[in-house]
Structure formats: structure tokens, C-alpha cells
């Protein structure tokens, strides 16, 4: 089990900067997601770690060993591509054997290992098929088997599940996690799907415009986003802009409390509140928590839960996500009072 470190990595394509001084540590044996919108640089970072691109500045270390100048074929990585990149003129077995042969493992030894890995990805019996004869999910698993059979130090995946339908994707997410845990393989996983990142990862790293804006365990990153971008990219958030005081933040004349440290009184502050943290009530409770009156504008009914779009007094649109315990929790046009705990007000950088 080895860790991966990148330090000060910057990369530009022509005049376009793609990665800007990125530093990160990927813990050994853990699955880390690189999450971000397109153009955020996540794939580039992955490719730099793999060795398909060289950084303009900075270094990459695998297991403590600097590999920035090591060619791809010596880095002992396993890579799964978005398009799977299976060799179309070879059988499944030959695809999986390819990496083994390159490392000098041949003959019955190699075949035994290949078979074992195919069993691990639950494709035993498919050895003689060609990629064209496999379904998307099966091809995906062959790509995975091919990448891990050589016992790489790091497994890199570039949006491997984006071509699959929802059900298959969920199945594969579970499979992937199981295999990764079984092998204790340090894994880096690029995705733009935040749900996927939350489900799979031990660590989530959010990228925006070539920088890592926040990194940590999924729950931590989700519950305590540090920036507006992180808050809105990972999940939904309501943003309330106001002014700091000694006790809290004044938003539209109301004092809202937070558990986070506040900047000096008088400075502009933005609070982020997750929609599921907010409750709807008809009356102004004298609770310790934050309250905000609003009028229901729209109700999106989704069976188990509903999303409410409300307008606050100053016109700000807010979202509330509530389980449908009592249907309906409120009616269109109704005046309600939103309430949430101070701990759920997160101070975010603007």
C-alpha cells in the first residue's frame, strides 16, 4: 500500500492554464475522488499522476519515490479509461494477459492470475469472448481486471462509470468499492457526479478551475463546505448574505446564529444552509435556532420527499427539502417560518 503525493503541480495547454499549483496527498489504501465540473482540471491531474502528461511545474511522488520524470510504463499504475480502451482484436483473456506479459509473467502462471482476476470482477467464463461481444458493464469489468491484474501500486480511474445507465452504475459502484477494499489498493477516481463521489470515496477532493478548493471525508466536505463553490457543487445550498455582528449575522434585519467563528463585526458574511437542514413551521417558534419567514412559491413532489421553493421577505429564493411525513407540509402561497439549528449555518468564503 503506497500513497501518492503531488506538490505544486501546474499545467497549461498553450496559453490556457489548466492546473494551478495543486498539492494533495492521497492516503495509502484509500479511495479518493477528484470531483469537479468539466474543465476543472481533474482529468489532467489524473493523467499527470499516471504519466501521460508532464507538469509544467511541480512533482509527483508514488510511495515516496519521485516519478515526475519516470515514463508511464515504469510507474506501475493501473488505469481504467472512460472509453475502456479494450484491445478489440484480442479476447478478454488476452486483454488481461497483456500487462502480465509486459512484466515478464508468462505461461500458465500468467493465465492462472488472469483467471483469478476475472473471477474477482465476476467475469469468470468470459475469457474467449471479444470486447465487441460484451455489454458495457462487462467491458468495464474487463478494463478493471486488466488494470489490476499486474498488481499496480495505484489504481487510476477516469470517469469509468459515466457511460453506464443508472442501475448498472450503482451496481458497479458497489463492485468497485468491494474490489478496492479487498485489494487495499490506493485508488484515485475522477468524476463529475457528486453523488458518486459521496458514495464511493474515503476522501473527496473538489476541484475548481485548476485548484483543489476543499478536500476531506465525504461527510465533512458535505456538512462543512468552506466555499460557495464547494457548497453548491456538492449538494444544494441556500446562501444568505449579511453583515457580521458580535452574536451572529444580520440578514435582512434578522439575526441568524452560527456555530462557526465569525469575522470582525461589520464585515460582509455569507451563510450557507443545506435544504434538508431546514424545517417548515406555521408559527414563529421561540426556539433557540434560526428562523426566517417566507412564502411558498413552488412545491416539487417526489414521492418520498418534496422540495419547496420559497421566497424570503427580501426576495431571496430558498430551497427546502423535506420528507413527506405529513402531506402536504405546506400549501402554495402559504406564509411559513423556516427554522434550523445554528450549527447548520455554515460560514462560507464568498
Amino acid at each position: 500500500m503506497v500513497g501518492v503525493d503531488v506538490a505544486g503541480v501546474s499545467k497549461g495547454f498553450g496559453a490556457v492554464p489548466v492546473l494551478d499549483d495543486v498539492s494533495a496527498a492521497f492516503a495509502p489504501g484509500m479511495l479518493t475522488s477528484l470531483l469537479g465540473p468539466s474543465g476543472s482540471g481533474k482529468t489532467t491531474l489524473l493523467r499527470i499522476i499516471a504519466g501521460f502528461e508532464t507538469p509544467d511545474r511541480g512533482s509527483v511522488r508514488i510511495g515516496g519515490e519521485t516519478v515526475t520524470d519516470t515514463p508511464v510504463w515504469r510507474r506501475q499504475i493501473g488505469m481504467v479509461f472512460q472509453s475502456y480502451a479494450l484491445f478489440p482484436h484480442m479476447t478478454v483473456l488476452q486483454n488481461v494477459l497483456f500487462g502480465l506479459h509486459r512484466r515478464g509473467v508468462r505461461g500458465t502462471d500468467a493465465i492462472a492470475r488472469a483467471r483469478a482476476t476475472l473471477d474477482l470482477v465476476r467475469l469468470g467464463g468470459f475469457e474467449a469472448r471479444r470486447p465487441a461481444q460484451l455489454s458495457g458493464g462487462q467491458q468495464q469489468r474487463v478494463a478493471l481486471a486488466r488494470a489490476i491484474v499486474t498488481g499496480p501500486r495505484v489504481l487510476l480511474l477516469d470517469e469509468p462509470l459515466s457511460a453506464l445507465d443508472r442501475r448498472l452504475r450503482q451496481e458497479m459502484q458497489v463492485e468497485l468499492r468491494r474490489i478496492q477494499r479487498t485489494l487495499n489498493l490506493t485508488t484515485i477516481f475522477v468524476t463529475h457526479d457528486q453523488e458518486e463521489a459521496l458514495t464511493l470515496s474515503d476522501t473527496v477532493a473538489i476541484l475548481d478551475h485548476g485548484r483543489i478548493v476543499q478536500s476531506g471525508a465525504p461527510a465533512e466536505v458535505y456538512e462543512r463546505p468552506r466555499s460557495r463553490f464547494a457548497a453548491s457543487f456538492l449538494g444544494d445550498a441556500n446562501f444568505l448574505a449579511g453583515t457580521a455582528t458580535a452574536d451572529g449575522v444580520v440578514v435582512s434585519g434578522r439575526l441568524l446564529r452560527t456555530a462557526d467563528p465569525l469575522p470582525s463585526p461589520g464585515s460582509a458574511v455569507t451563510l450557507a444552509v443545506r435544504p434538508e437542514k431546514i424545517g417548515l413551521d406555521t408559527a414563529d417558534s421561540a426556539a433557540d435556532g434560526n428562523t426566517l419567514p417566507a412564502i411558498v412559491q413552488q412545491i416539487i413532489y417526489a414521492g418520498a420527499a418534496s422540495t419547496f421553493l420559497l421566497a424570503a421577505e427580501d426576495g431571496t429564493l430558498l430551497r427546502v427539502f423535506a420528507q413527506n411525513r405529513d402531506v402536504p407540509a405546506a400549501a402554495l402561497g402559504q406564509r411559513v417560518v423556516l427554522h434550523w439549528a445554528p450549527a447548520h449555518s455554515v460560514v462560507v468564503a464568498a
Binding site: A50, F52, V72, W73, G78, M79, L86, F98, R102, R146
Partner: peptide
Amino acid sequence: EAARGLGA
């Protein structure tokens, strides 16, 4: 690239 990644 896949081939290179596999050591070719």
C-alpha cells in the same frame, strides 16, 4: 495509452 499504462 492503455497499452503504455500496462507497460508496453
